[in-house]
Simulated assay, not measured.
Amino acid sequence: MSFRNFPMVPRVIYGKGSSQQVEEIVEPIRQNGYPIIYFADHFFKDKSLVQHIPVQKNDKIIFIDTTEEPKTSDVDQIRDQLIEEFGKVSGIIGYGGGSVMDMTKAVSLMMNNEGSSANYQGWDLIQNEGVYHAGIPTLSGTGAEVSRTCVLTGPEKKLGLNSDFTPFNQVILDPNLTQGAPKEQVFFTGMDCYIHSIESLNGTFLNAFSRSYGEKALELCKKIFLEKSEWDEESDEDLMMASWHGGMSIAYSQVGVAHALSYGLSYVLGIKHGVGNCIAFDQIAEFYPEGVKDFKKMVDKFEVEIPKNICQNLSDEQMNKMVAVALSLTPLWENALGKNWHQQITEKKIKELYEKM
């Protein structure tokens, strides 16, 4: 029997104010005058966070537009721009939510792998290690700071660059950076964590390793989104830890039905990942009855609106593409339903699920 030998993030700093140590951390990785590139969510363009980014010499800040999910074309464009301007870079440091984390990982990989990032969407297709990359999350929930994938929308599909070279070399977890984020954004990224914990814990790939992390992530999500009467500083810290544990849980297992359906929604309709997960999860009580029941309570408590009827006026072509994208995600369906998942999940069944949304 062969066991997967997964990499983990080798270096992690946690603590309020720990992001102040970025300069000290990145200084040793500078090579031959090549710059450090900082990615930051465009949300921070005129905010104080940017003033604390320790730019030196020829270092550069690139603001990442997170209005839409990251695309392979975005990754290729930034990679080409950096090579043209600098030849090489010493490393890439990302400040932001899941989209910026994924862009940071993807551009790092593509600095040392030829061609379009679309050629590497899938499992273990990356051939060469990327440049040094570090993640500094400013939103919690996606688990992108710890995962071995970076999810991109390509010309043919929405799928990650899943590889042993993808995880960050360094992660800095500073709860101060997540304070004050918009309530809905916090909810939808938090639900990403909750949903993939439910999918991991109810999956056929589950083992003691993934269960231990998944149970902790789920416990923290329930504490934050169900049990506590109001949001406070401890909630920011707990959600940051839930995100980390949730990401670790799916590293050795997999996500499931909601994520597969969400990928289709995102590819065809451009719906953001966390929102898409919520739209899908809201309609799949047949697969995760207890999880969906608690999810509906969380939605009511936080008074968040889950979009409805988004698939009502789709063309046949759009619906067929959505179904094809969802159906192509074999590992997700196998985790959810086992090796014989094809007996339950057909094009007709997926279409029926989308029609409920």
Rank of each mutant, 00 (worst) to 15 (best):
E305M: 13
I250V: 06
F225T: 14
D282Y: 14
L327V: 00
F287E: 07
K301T: 07
F287G: 01
A242I: 09
L226H: 09
S266Q: 15
E219C: 12
F287C: 07
Y213W: 13
I279F: 11
M248D: 01
A280V: 04
W244N: 02
A336D: 08
I250C: 00
S229V: 03
N309E: 14
M240N: 05
I284V: 14
Q283R: 12
A260Q: 13
Q343D: 11
Y288A: 10
E230P: 03
Q343H: 02
P331C: 01
W341F: 13
Y288G: 05
S328G: 04
D232N: 15
Q343M: 04
M322A: 09
K222M: 07
S235M: 05
A326F: 07
G291Y: 00
P331L: 09
A258P: 04
A324D: 03
G274L: 09
L329G: 02
G274I: 08
G270R: 11
D238W: 15
V255G: 09
Q283S: 05
W341V: 11
F295S: 10
R211M: 12
A326I: 12
V292S: 02
C278L: 01
E237K: 15
V268K: 06
E290R: 14
S235C: 14
H245A: 09
H342Q: 05
S266P: 11
E305S: 14
Y288F: 03
H245R: 06
Q254L: 02
S243H: 00
M248R: 06
D232M: 07
N335W: 10
S266E: 13
E227R: 14
K301E: 10
G264R: 11
P289H: 11
I224R: 03
L218W: 03
Q343A: 09
A324H: 01
L220F: 04
V299S: 06
K308V: 15
H342P: 00
D294Y: 08
A336G: 13
F302S: 03
M241N: 12
L239Y: 06
H259K: 01
